[in-house]
Design a protein around this nucleic acid. Sequence first.
DNA 1: GGTGGTTTCGTGT
DNA 2: ACACGAAACCACC
Length: 177
Amino acid sequence: MIELRRMTAQELKDQEVRYNYAQALGHRMLTASTTQGVCYVGFVTGSEEEALDDLHTRLPHARLTPSADEQQQRAVAWMEGETGLAVRLHVSATDFQWKVWQALLQVAPGTTATYADIARRIGHPKACRAVGSAVGQNPVAVLIPCHRIVRTNGGWGGYHWGIDIKRCLLLRERTNH
DNA sequence: GGTGGTTTCGTGT
DNA sequence: ACACGAAACCACC
């Protein structure tokens, strides 16, 4: 069970964020959290510093401290298949991004949806391109399954952390479900 | 089946 | 006000 909680503008402005590196899905990952929940999950595709840069880009006002906590550990366990635990997410979003990310949570494991599907589902049937942008800005990889969104014409679409990782995630889910 | 130009809309500047 | 996307559509070859 994934609980999605939205940061207020005030929370975004002055935020204590703890971050920690972990191993999941056969990759090195970076997780981060506020006192309210997990605010970032990303793949470490290069150096740890580069991964931290990506986190800092998404939360420019956060005060980053290296530290682990229970919500981060739950997120990692969830990715490894322990989906019984509740994981609380705490993310900053525009109204449009909020609708898109909630729609992503409705896409079941082992299945995919297209950018146009998501556009229809949130009531903006022509905003497929804007949906693409919003999907790409998802700060919580895997738990908010932006990797399950593909192109109408059958293409893979893109992936913030590299198309190879997206393919791995989809192939893995396809065989496990 | 593949390519290229056009449409479309939320964001960051 | 303007340019840019993790897109889609249509025409044309």
